[in-house]
Design a protein around this nucleic acid. Sequence first.
DNA 1: GTCTATAGCTTGATAGAC
DNA 2: GTCTATCAAGCTATAGAC
Lengths: 231, 231
Amino acid sequence: MAHSEKQSGGALRGRRRKGQGPDLRESILDAAEDLFSRHGFHGVTVRQVAAEAGVDTALIHYYFGAKRELFDHVFARRAEILNGARLQAIAAYRAAHTGGDLDPEAIIRAFIDPMINLSLTGDEGWKNYFRLVALVNNTPAWGGETMSRFFDPVVRQLVDALRDALPQAEERDLYWCYQFLTGALMLALSETGRIDHLSGDLCRSTDLEAVRARLYAWCAAGLREVVSRRL
Amino acid sequence: MAHSEKQSGGALRGRRRKGQGPDLRESILDAAEDLFSRHGFHGVTVRQVAAEAGVDTALIHYYFGAKRELFDHVFARRAEILNGARLQAIAAYRAAHTGGDLDPEAIIRAFIDPMINLSLTGDEGWKNYFRLVALVNNTPAWGGETMSRFFDPVVRQLVDALRDALPQAEERDLYWCYQFLTGALMLALSETGRIDHLSGDLCRSTDLEAVRARLYAWCAAGLREVVSRRL
DNA sequence: GTCTATAGCTTGATAGAC
DNA sequence: GTCTATCAAGCTATAGAC
């Protein structure tokens, strides 16, 4: 509230960077994203963010206001890009298959592929971001509400597409299957290193190509089975 | 370290409670479990735990030492009970099917059923505990190591049993499938309420019977599919 | 825009009375 | 065992110089 006029006003947004030196605003968000994703909201101090970004704590409050607002900015920053990519992937698949049968596995692929691609080919920040989303997804106090606020529209597109692909499916089954899917997906994207230790380094949690090669098949087969058992 | 002699010594353990009034040590653990599971380690203060337990902060330090030691006590308390139940369920299934074919879905059921049963029929503390485990499971900084330390032995039993049931399966596939399973399972057990909102209350995250009716089929079908695609 | 300095509070932990 | 009292440290956030 103390800084809302600066965030919404065009003065700052219109001429940021000015071509000289790094963009401190983005540096702060990058540092916050990195730290929040590893230690959670309460596990990070504004001072740590400032130190990691190479700025002073006062500057963080100048740009983003309170600590919680900083967190929200971090969470929202990549959500739009991600949602756009996923919506487009689902729409592209539907457009290419109007009239014909829809394949549930291809729909799931369209939903997940953008995330794995961003994590693999994008900057390191995307890995931090997915870790953060996974953390929020498992945060009972406010995680469910936050996830809904940012990602429900895309999920509805997924469920809609799956319903069209499996018109005989019960509505509830689609939602439960989505929950299983997102639980498996989020854990994979957060790359906690546990599977490395567990498997004696036979599997690497950073090996998202291995995830891709298995997760779609896993989800599609599970969905088919759950839907068919109800009939 | 300041209190190690009190924790390991028999004096406190031998005559706790004395039959009068509530056991403050357990009350503290219950309160800490509740709060940690909702807000994470850093999101809870020792003072909050003390207030919730109805004791003074000094007593917490007297019993458990530092805040982190309190957390470790909370995490370890139910791990033994849980691991015992799961090991027994897997062993019981194997004992009942020596010589014959092993069913992957039944093995998965033996692995998961104790958790769902404890959450459904046990005290409220079990729900808090599973939320806590889910949170740790998705904590990059130290979650992977902690999960491994407490739960790897049981997971190895699961993987061993699945290997015997599917001798043609590739080793790596078994580990990846376990990761998908645990991601879906932990999210379900943490009951974040997101599916309620998403489905317009068609599904309830507290409805673990609905999870049970679908998760085993989901996991078993996914496992079969992943294993078969590799051949 | 960016930094210095600091106010005002909360935290984890302990010493010591009972 | 349990509580009162308290300390040193660290925290968020802001005011004001530049």
